[in-house]
């Protein structure tokens, strides 16, 4: 753990008690995330990748081990509004305009009107939605709605961006486009990003660090530091380096499944 460590998990475990007995969503997870990292969590359903993200966000409580976010507990980090969270569904309020949706966290956190307006136009610019401020969510495509929800998470300048399969429901073409934009946004803002995904190419294309997880119990099977450069055009996906990492991710996923 260094001064630049943003998230540090030690022997982190989380067991849900269900009617069918305990479910080990996370088991002895050890992981450090450095400032400015783009960390992807990849694995099949039930491997605990979303749960880990939710633990970081203080939306779930671990049952064992330790975790710090920004050097403090997840709860303190949440109260300090240390992160922005992007959910799988854009979840924009239908009764608010795009601008109004982005203003929501700012209103709650008590920013001044002028500051709100300035921030809304800045983050809309950032996600390439300038000019859509007065539109309602239903007037936008799914991809645009998800971009608006990213803008909403960026609006209050948290250093950490947690994204739970944000592009999962979108088609391949839109997804590629958004991945490209997300990389640019990451380069522009220098945020630390935690990103949950099902897709190997998406994880390899975006990340500086890929956390491969496997289910029953949810655990980390491999952590891959990506050797790819920070500048990543879409066609980097055809290079041997890219394919090699993708291969390693696939191996890691397969290893996690070796028992069945």
């Amino acid at each position: 753990m260094t001064n630049n460590t943003i998230v540090s998990a030690k022997d982190l475990s989380l067991t849900f008690q269900t009617n069918d007995g305990p479910v080990h969503a996370l088991s002895d997870v050890n992981l450090d995330i450095e400032k400015g990292d783009f960390v992807s969590f990849i694995g099949p359903s039930g491997c605990g990748k979303t749960t880990f993200l939710r633990v970081m966000a203080d939306l779930e409580q671990p049952t064992g081990g330790e975790i710090t976010v920004n050097g403090v507990s997840p709860r303190e980090a949440r109260l300090a509004r240390a992160y922005g969270y992007v959910f799988q569904a854009a979840g924009l309020y239908p009764w608010r305009t795009i601008g109004g949706n982005i203003r929501l966290p700012l209103e709650i956190m008590g920013y001044s009107k002028a500051d709100q307006a300035e921030r809304v136009s800045r983050v809309l610019e950032l996600v390439d939605l300038a000019g859509f401020e007065k539109k309602y969510p239903w007037q936008l495509s799914g991809g645009m709605q998800q971009r608006a929800s990213i803008a909403r998470a960026l609006a209050f300048d948290a250093d950490i961006l947690l994204m739970d399969e944000p592009f999962g429901a979108l088609d391949e073409i839109v997804r590629d486009h958004l991945n490209e934009q997300l990389l640019k946004l990451w380069a522009d803002t220098g945020k630390t990003i935690g990103f949950v995904t099902h897709s190997i190419p998406e994880a390899v294309y975006l990340s500086t660090k890929i956390v491969v997880m496997s289910p029953r119990p949810g655990r980390v099977t491999d952590v891959i530091e990506s050797p790819l450069p920070k500048e990543r055009p879409l066609d980097i996906r055809d290079t041997p380096e890219f394919l090699e990492i993708a291969h390693r991710v696939r191996e890691g996923l397969r290893a996690g499944h070796s028992y069945d």
Binding site: L59, Y85, G91
Partner: peptide, 28 residues
Amino acid sequence: KPAELDLLKTYNASGTQSFWKLRLPASL
């Protein structure tokens, strides 16, 4: 939905805020 309530939790919104900003308009 639970995700909508979680979102407000990540903002550390108070109960009053979640009532006026989410629950009430959603119930209209």
